[in-house]
Design a binder for these strands. Structure first.
Lengths: 224, 224
DNA sequence: GTGGAACTTAACGGTTTCTTAAACCCGGGC
DNA sequence: GCCCGGGTTTAAGAAACCGTTAAGTTCCAC
């Protein structure tokens, strides 16, 4: 298992490298934010441990660059920035975990194990349907470059459909995705939401499969 | 996105359910540890939020059971047990994240988002008979790559026949597959559906066995 | 609180699908 | 040739499905 440690504090870095190597990981170590992208591209790491306050380029910036290029490598942020919105920002920038310094090496090990157990989760590509761009990860939609603000139900519906573009989702599945088992829908709420979505996204983006359900039209697939 | 919340503190659970529903998640809620396994099996959740101190069965136990059965659902532990070795044990039991009570809802949201970023849906099992490909889950059929639109009854009939290509299914069996035990059909509805299917799939795809029933055979290319 | 957005429910009409029924077909026995 | 029973085809009314509109209700931000 190959791990990239990005940390400019020599003392901490030394300790971590030593501890992780002791656990059997192959650890590479860089100290500057602008080294992250090249290192990851070259190195095929199974995980990255990323400090945030770095010379060259801020760690968060480096992380965003990585994710913009759809690199799926698991990233654990290790930072002294302990404010709530630091953590939220880090996770939303694409971190898989966020550990606050000072932390116990034991916990880092456990969280690293948890990440490595799963392996990289491939990032989904942006879904483009005509002038429509759906980012299922960020749960955002833009039309002709303009962000489209969607109400909760409609967004949830669209994101669910975007999980399998070109695939049919049954009404039962979609209703479960929106409502769970607790509330049962015994009206045509689903159809109404579909209707509203179509109005906002353009009529041919969501296709009806009669007697079955709905599907988001895939970019590549020919027919609408 | 479907989320299962496992939490016995009514007040906390209520708040979380409310907050998550507000974010567009379909939230189901159970309070006992021994309800986790059945719920997850029945519910196809995208993530589980799991308290540890639970009636019925300890959360950690429930988590281990889940993982022993190779269930891959992402699990975020939310617990007041804040000792280092609690966290390590939780993560090593198969948790993907471990959040200590009291926590900020904002952080839970961010960590949930991080867990729900995920790759494409796994491939589904397909039934293949000659050039015919049936996806029972999406309830779609393609013939030589071309989608064939089938109404529900015809589809159900075809799916049943496709379970044993080259095998004869009795009328009684097929009628039961279409209408269940309760409904008795006392007309030739079955024959009519067979007729329609043959028209769409090609005349020789469904063979009649006089006095017994029908069977599916690989249809010849180019017809239909 | 209050106003507006979002959500649900209900109703209607056009369309597809399902069932029923009746006519038709066809091989086998006489 | 004629009849018989199982199977096929056709047609038509009934039922279900889906899109749309609109009204009522809940939710939420101000």
């Amino acid at each position: 298992m190959r791990v990239l440690l990005v940390e400019d504090d020599e003392l901490l870095a030394d300790g971590l490298v030593r501890a992780l190597r002791h656990d059997g990981y192959a650890v590479d170590h860089v100290t500057r934010g602008d080294q992250v992208q090249p290192a990851v591209e070259a190195g095929r790491f199974d995980a990255v441990l990323l400090d945030l306050g770095l010379p060259g380029m801020d760690g968060l910036e480096a992380l965003r660059t990585l994710r913009q290029r759809r690199d799926p490598v698991p990233v654990i942020v290790i930072s002294a920035r302990d404010r709530l919105d630091d953590r939220v920002r880090g996770l939303d920038a694409g971190a898989d975990d966020y550990l606050i310094k000072p932390f116990s090496v034991e916990e880092l090990r456990a969280r690293l194990r948890a990440r490595l157990r799963r392996g990289p989760e491939p990032a989904r590509p942006l879904l483009e349907v005509g002038e429509l761009v759906i980012d299922p990860d960020a749960m955002t939609v833009t039309r002709a470059g303009e962000p489209v603000r969607l109400p909760r139900r409609e967004l949830a519906l669209l994101v669910e459909l975007a999980r399998g573009p070109g695939r049919v989702f049954t009404r039962a599945h979609l209703e479960q995705a929106l409502y769970g088992w607790s509330d049962e829908v015994e009206s045509n709420a689903l159809e109404v939401h579909i209707h509203h979505l179509r109005r906002k996204l353009g009529g041919d983006s969501i296709k009806t499969v009669r007697g079955v359900g709905y599907m988001l039209v895939a970019p590549a697939a020919g027919e609408g």
